[in-house]
């Protein structure tokens, strides 16, 4: 259990009632280890985002269990009143669009969340700058999102997801809006983050060319999750 960062057991999610009832996830079980970069793949509409949002404590499952690290957070119901606190302390999010706050500059976008913690402002600012430099944005602290390219903004979004030092990053199609070169460089960065910081990342992707970077592949098939391992950059 020590090495496990996400564990999901018999997770189910149905939307709607009666006629319009849709069972999207029908008993998914899987584990993600610390420091792993995991790909989540399935055709569109299969429930990738739904699964990710349940792990992210944003969407309430219908039944099952979710552990984040050691903590059992969901067991037929949320075990915490403040799901946002879990998100704030354990999770980082990256989406297809960068969703940066347009009126904040790059540095403020990245430091906003950790600044709400009890950490010293200086410490947060310094760490945020380090992360931005690491992602090649050392010159852009004061730029607004509107002044940056799509790839740069996506890297800022990654920096934001990292800034509060989460154990887990949930990335929903983070490269879908990027060209293939930038997609490769973004995934390389995510890979590096998992190795250097011990963060676990679940990344939804449609692009098979990116699977080589991943340690593990989760595939949604008929509402259940199949796990396959990747060795030496080869999909098994």
């Amino acid at each position: 259990m020590d090495n496990i960062s996400i564990k999901v057991e018999n997770l189910e999610k149905t939307f709607g009632e009666g006629e319009s009832r849709v069972e999207v996830i029908k008993g998914a079980s899987f584990e993600v280890n610390k420091g792993e970069l995991v790909a989540l793949i399935a055709p569109s509409g299969a429930g990738k985002s739904t699964l990710l949002m349940m792990i992210g404590c944003v969407l309430e499952p219908t039944s099952g269990k979710i552990w984040l690290g050691e903590e059992l957070v969901y067991d037929k119901k949320w075990l915490t009143k403040d799901a946002r606190k879990i998100r704030r302390e354990k999770l980082g999010f990256i989406f297809q669009a960068h969703y940066l706050i347009p009126f904040l500059n790059v540095l403020d976008n990245v430091s906003l969340l950790p600044l709400t913690s009890s950490e010293k402002e200086e410490v947060v600012r310094d760490r945020s700058k380090d992360i931005l430099r690491f992602l090649g944005l050392g010159e852009k602290f004061n730029a607004k999102p509107s002044e940056l390219s799509g790839g740069q903004n996506q890297r800022v979004a990654i920096a934001r997801a990292l800034a509060n030092q989460p154990q887990i990053i949930l990335a929903d199609e983070p490269t879908a809006a990027l060209d293939i070169e930038r997609a490769h460089s973004v995934v390389k960065m995510l890979k590096e983050v998992t190795k250097t910081q011990g963060v676990s990342i679940i990344m939804v992707t449609h692009d098979e060319r990116l699977l080589g970077y991943c340690d593990k592949i989760l595939k949604i098939v008929a509402g259940k999750v199949e796990t396959s391992h990747v060795t030496e950059g080869e999909v098994v």
């Binding site: 992210g56 944003v58 946002r84 606190k85 998100r87 704030r88 302390e89 999770l91 980082g92 999010f93 969703y99 706050i101 347009p102 906003l112 969340l113 709400t116 934001r160 997801a161 509060n164």
Partner: peptide
Amino acid sequence: IKEISIMKLIGIPNFL
């Protein structure tokens, strides 16, 4: 509202 939802999603407390 989009930015607000995003802030809520990533964990920014309501009071802010």
